[in-house]
């Protein structure tokens, strides 16, 4: 499959990038590592006239911890391989290092960026296909049509956000910075995804994701990301779970954030499951309750990539496993 023709613009700064995007709104798209958009273009799911190539913007490639506000800041163009291997990320946000290190394959992690993974387009069997394959059917919601092929009679697009870093980052309480010609805004990642397949996230056409920020972990806390996929490499997650929890110095869970990805059109925080844990000690019985509550709340209803009963079961299993592991990480962090 060859790429469609386009013009490539190489801004040297974020300002140049957002100005170009504002000037060419509907006809321009951003390319960072290119591992998502180039496939979309080969399949003619996206045919922008211009690609705004951010590789030349060197001040988007960094990892730095700022003591003053306790934020680990990662530039959007930092490759996933660099994020996964970074000593700072491994120390201050190990769940993110785990997630970044499980994306796709080693080769794709050398090109793919953290910004690109956060902004990954949503996925569906009927969408991620070549133009030829899709041409035999009427257009679905995501491609500008009026129907969904996965959820019969569905009134919206149910394509899934399958990025690995998203649930880990949401569990860690991360935020992202978005830039446009009107300035910059910060969006907490648990409000970044719309839950609607047509839009995927809250970014406007003229916006560029510039930075991912992760707050320094609290004392006596642990976080983990677990990915479940068909194969141990290359595949998107069938279910990805991020859990971050804080203890009270003993065995009581003081606070917890659970985030389940790839099971719904946006990563989901099962809040009832979280509240079952708060203020309690872990026990097999409690974990089982938490697992089934998470399963119900996440409600994987979409028969995509794996059957629904299987996904429901896996959500429950992975949430329990992640809580157990995060608990062990928190305890092992004690001197």
């Amino acid at each position: 499959m060859r790429l469609p023709r386009f013009e490539c613009f190489y801004p040297r700064s974020v300002d140049e990038a957002v100005s170009f995007l504002a000037a060419h709104k509907e006809e321009a798209r951003i390319i960072a590592g290119g591992t998502d958009i180039l496939v979309a273009m080969k399949q003619r799911r996206s045919t922008p006239r211009y690609l705004v190539n951010l590789k030349g913007v060197c001040d988007l490639n960094y990892i730095r911890y700022q003591e003053s506000d306790g934020l680990l800041r990662i530039g959007a163009l930092t490759t996933l391989d660099v994020v996964a291997r970074s000593c700072e990320v491994k120390e201050l946000a190990p769940a993110l290092a785990q997630a970044a290190g499980r994306v796709a394959s080693p080769h794709l992690r050398n090109s793919g960026t953290i910004g690109g993974n956060v902004c990954l387009d949503s996925r569906c069997w009927y969408y991620n296909q070549s133009q030829f394959w899709r041409s035999v059917r009427e257009k679905c919601f995501k491609t500008g049509g009026d129907r969904c092929y996965v959820v019969k009679g569905g009134k919206q697009c149910y394509s899934l956000v399958s990025a690995d870093t998203a649930p880990a980052l949401i569990a860690l309480g991360a935020e992202v910075e978005l830039a446009s010609t009107t300035g910059r805004r910060v969006v907490p990642l648990d409000r970044f995804y719309t839950g609607v397949g047509q839009t995927v996230n809250v970014m406007g056409k003229g916006e560029v994701l510039t930075e991912v920020r992760v707050p320094r972990p609290a004392v006596d806390s642990g976080a983990v990301y677990i990915k479940h996929a068909y194969r141990e490499s290359i595949d998107f997650p069938l279910v990805g779970v991020g859990v971050a929890l804080g203890l009270d110095g003993g065995n009581i869970i003081k606070d917890v954030r659970i985030c389940v990805g790839a099971a719904a059109p946006a990563p989901v925080r099962p809040l009832k499951a979280e509240s079952l844990l708060k203020g309690n000690e872990l026990s097999e019985l409690l974990l089982k309750e938490v697992g089934s509550s998470a399963s119900e709340e996440v409600r994987p209803i979409v028969n995509l990539f794996a059957p629904v009963p299987y996904k429901r079961h896996i959500v429950g299993v992975l949430v329990q496993r992640a809580i157990r592991q995060a608990f062990e990480v928190a305890k092992s962090g004690r001197a």
């Binding site: 490539c8 290119g34 496939v39 190539n53 391989d81 080769h107 794709l108 090109s111």
Partner: peptide, 26 residues
């Protein structure tokens, strides 16, 4: 030709990357 097989692997500055998803200009 879409980044899932690795048969197009080349080294760029010593790192293995997929040339099918690398723009020649880059």
């Amino acid at each position: 030709d879409e980044g899932t097989c690795g048969s197009c692997t080349v080294l760029i500055d010593g790192k293995p990357v997929l040339s099918c998803l690398t723009l020649a200009l880059d």
